[in-house]
Amino acid sequence: MSALTPQLDANGKLKHFLTLDGLDATLLHEIIDRASGFLGVSDQAVKKVPLCRGKVIANLFFETSTRTRTTFELAAKRLSADVLNLNISTSSTAKGETLLDTLRNLEAMHVDMFVVRHATSGAAHFIADHAAPHVSVVNAGDGRHSHPTQAMLDMLTIHRHKPDFGQLRVAIIGDILHSRVARSQILALHTLGVPEVRVIGPRTLIPAQAEEALGVKVYYDLREGLRDVDVVIMLRLQRERMSSALLPSEHEYFQLYGLTEERLAVAHPEAMVMHPGPINRGVEMDSQVADGERSVILEQVSNGIAVRMAVMSMCLGTQNLQHSQIAGATDGQ
């Protein structure tokens, strides 16, 4: 009945970054532009800008993650913020009370931002709803729901190769059902004006009523789905989905949905290949594609730091410092 937690403050500035649902193209372009500016920071001798100096950012990871946590940590450090890393293992009995207790304790340490990863859909919204008014919350992945910084780093990556979103056909392949990455990518692609988004996978891994609910075209056949696409996004297949009621085996999955050079041939000749990592080689794609010239997978990782810097600095309200300092930072680009 109630609406989702607002992500924008009274002035229309980003306060929380929980989902791409409800954010407009202008804002997404602002993130992309700001992140593009930050790309040069990594090439400087001193890889830091002072945008968030004196701010405290807590990485609150209720679900284990190396890659995402590391890039968030690096991004925060490059913004000159102080970073706390908390890996909080959630037992099945751990409930809201402990989650809220954790929040209260950190708030007492004057944390300015929570970066949250949690295994349950809606967790980031829950935390934003209950955090103190001065605290910003950035969603680093909640259950199957949303992973907006991953989606935005993918948008930045696409934008750097194919700047005109209005001309693109994009295919997302794999476990759409359980993927917060796919849900966020689909929202971002639509908002940025991509006219055709396809999802490809077996019926067991496609959500109910996907076409209507997500506004995508569904393909069960890889070859058909890949035809003429400009961007191919592979999803990671969790090991526990294998040999279950969802899929018979890795072998059969690769046979049907694994990306190979030969299968990629039906896509647009300049199609780019993406993967949020880490790759299961020989399951989602073979090494030839993963390491091939169309793969932008490692670039995605670098872009991830820039996008997270952009989102964190925007949420912490440092827009006003932006121009002079970023301009200085990106001279070498």
């Binding site: 199957r144 849900r183 109910a208 996907a210 209507e212 609910a213 997500l214």
Partner: peptide, 15 residues
């Protein structure tokens, strides 16, 4: 309910 909203929000569905 396994349907439009569960698909969008990534909530585990009951068909």
């Amino acid at each position: 309910h396994e349907g439009r909203i569960s698909a969008r929000l990534g909530l585990p569905g009951i068909p």
